[in-house]
Amino acid sequence: MSAQVPQKSVLGRRLLLGAPLAVLALVGGGWALMLRRMAGGNFDPHSLPSQLIGKKVPDFSLPGLDGGVAMTGAELQNPGRPMLVNFFASWCVPCLEDAPMLNKLAKNGLPIWGITYKDKQADTQRFLSQNGNPYARIAVDQPGRVAIDWGVYGVPETYLIDAAGLVHWRFAGALTQRVVDEDLTPLLRRIGA
């Protein structure tokens, strides 16, 4: 029955009507790529990139834990050597998983400063005595406002700061050996720990 339609125009129209197929190929290819990267851990639609990367630590001033030394942005804006800042709370379950890795990093000589997020000071003390205290300094952010200035959206979150106070890396969630080996250690080497 195709005899009545000129052959040449059929080919042209086949190409034209192949457009939906091309669209499908593009979208499907994109999805396949997303799934592959998701399985490889390089693509996470739920992740939120930090706005602080490549910028200086914001200004802030927070009281120390149990009347300890206060913490200010100025100190972190020029720490003199690379270090980590860790937001945590005693009520957060992943923070429990985070603790051993932080302890290990601290033991290896990496300075870690902690900021507690919406936590009671007594609870924080109990948490530290049970899970070890990797922190060189601890400040208290009871209202959680400084955390918002940092762009924190969950605890635990860990920030890597270089000697000049520039933020190089932010990790949301409990640190794992894999994250430390693949992301943190190479970065530390690069910024000269």
């Binding site: 029955m1 195709s2 339609v5 059929v10 129209r13 086949r14 009507l17 197929l21 499908l24």
Partner: peptide
């Protein structure tokens, strides 16, 4: 990919000769 791709391929091939 199989279901949609197959049907769209068939569409591109056969639809041009529809009257």
């Amino acid at each position: 990919g199989l279901v949609i791709g197959g049907s769209l391929l068939l569409f591109a091939w056969r639809a041009p000769v529809l009257q």
